[in-house]
Nucleic acid binder design. Structure first.
Length: 426
DNA sequence: ACCCGGGGCGCC
DNA sequence: TGGGCGCCCCGGGT
């Protein structure tokens, strides 16, 4: 029997969901027709275009090269593979280029419809007209919450959502949705752990951590890293952000290259990625030292722990198999970061819950790892922001010297939140 | 009518 | 060859 926590439930616009379901259906039928026009309607592509029949068509009948394997050493056909096949076909079978774009679109709409439209509609409560996901506080290895029935922690974000799933979540008449989001909480926790002086200084003075990392990995002055008119500004910053998100988890040159190519659309050579990572280690010397210490300690104890002492056993760290051991080491490093960030959010949550009896108008709807979502009356925005922001930005425990910042956004729909003016705080 | 692993993909 | 989740589909099984 899972332990779960009941939140108030997310108010939804069922009408909008039904409208979008029709739109998604139309898109899917149309895309499926175009795909079948190319490959023939006798090849079953299924709902995801990842059936055995479709793979057989591509790799046996069309003799396309196998770009990538799955974990089980079979032919992969994920989005990365589609991109690679599309590029290969551009030079060898131009007629097939369009196929891969269509499949990408087809999967995109299929995911939106099955998971977020049909999947959400079937969980709307008849009694409350809301979604009541189960939020499980005690099921994950790192202490994070999980959400199920449905999972409301993975709604698509703007830019990857032609449906507007987040707009399904709509405040009732006279109410607003309010979201408070920790700014870069995992990076701040990482800076706290490794005590790199430049990182700490940047956070303590309200500086720009992505600019600092840009300066570090390209060995350029901070001023140049922050110069938005520099021709390389955008690309360098994108790469620096990716480094920052991966910094504390044991990033390898190949991983960085792949992420940049397929997620950011940037072609960076392996040598360049290698250099970037070396510069990162050199520029943040305490980072590597901390990582080595954590690995060593975890190897000795066979567990790793968060700052508040939640332990995670990792016996695999003593494995003789390199890949198993390496995975365990990344877990040993990641868990204190992700877990302590969660500890900090849970401490904030406890302060908020203690304040609820005095604020019955403040309704907690959802937690998304570093974010809390509330429903409030339209005239309580200022009170809510001041109270919640204060709860979240308090020093979590005595040793934690890095400032914590929570950013507030408010709006009628979850997909249309806007930043709250800073003068609400104070 | 279920169960399950594999593949794939959405988010933090 | 970063970590953490849950859901959908497929294909095979009971």
């Amino acid at each position: 029997m899972p332990v779960l926590m009941r939140f108030n439930g997310l108010p939804v616009d069922r009408q909008l969901m039904v409208e979008k379901r029709s739109e998604a259906e139309r898109q899917i039928v149309q895309l499926k027709g175009k795909i079948e026009y190319i490959i023939g309607s006798n090849v079953a592509i299924g709902a995801n275009a990842s059936t055995a029949a479709f793979k057989k068509y591509l790799f046996d009948e069309q003799q396309l090269p196998k770009m990538k394997s799955t974990d089980k050493d079979k032919d992969a056909l994920d989005d990365e593979t589609l991109i690679l096949l599309k590029e290969w076909c551009a030079g060898n079978k131009p007629d097939l280029v369009e196929l891969f774009e269509l499949v990408q679109e087809y999967r995109h709409w299929g995911k939106l419809k099955s998971t977020y439209i049909d999947g959400y509609i079937k969980h709307i409560s008849n009694a409350t007209r809301r979604l009541h996901p189960d939020l499980l506080p005690f099921t994950t290895e790192t202490g994070r919450f999980a959400s199920k029935n449905p999972n409301c922690q993975n709604m698509p974000r703007m830019g990857n959502d032609d449906v507007g799933v987040r707009n399904f979540i709509t405040a009732p008449e006279g109410k607003l949705l309010l979201s408070l989001d920790f700014s870069q909480i995992e990076l701040r926790v990482g800076a706290f752990y490794c005590k790199d002086e430049q990182m700490l200084e940047t956070y303590k003075t309200g500086g720009d951590i992505h600019a600092l990392t840009t300066a570090v990995i390209y060995k350029i002055p901070l001023a140049e890293a922050m110069d938005e008119s520099h021709p390389l500004y955008k690309e360098r910053r994108t790469i620096a952000k990716n480094c920052n998100f991966s910094t504390f988890f044991g990033l390898f040159p190949r991983g960085l290259q792949r992420t940049l190519r397929f997620k950011a659309g940037l072609d960076v050579s392996l040598d360049e990625c290698d250099k970037i990572i070396n510069n990162l280690k050199f520029g943040y010397p305490r980072l590597s030292r901390w990582q080595d210490e954590v690995k060593k300690r975890a190897g000795f104890r066979a567990y790793t722990e968060t700052w508040l002492g939640r332990r995670r056993a990792i016996p695999q760290i003593r494995s003789a198999t390199w890949s198993v051991k390496a995975f365990a080491e990344r877990v040993a490093i990641n868990t204190p970061i992700q877990g302590t960030a969660t500890d900090i959010l849970k401490l904030s949550l406890a302060r908020i819950i203690r304040g609820l009896p005095d604020r019955p108008w403040l309704k907690l709807l959802l937690q998304i790892h570093d974010e809390l979502v509330f429903e409030i009356p339209e005239n309580e925005v200022k009170n809510a922001v001041i109270f919640v922001k204060n709860c979240m930005e308090q020093q979590p425990f005595e040793a934690f010297s890095v400032p914590i910042i929570a950013e507030a956004e408010v709006g009628k729909r979850f997909g249309e939140l806007r930043g709250v003016k800073a003068d609400y705080v104070e």
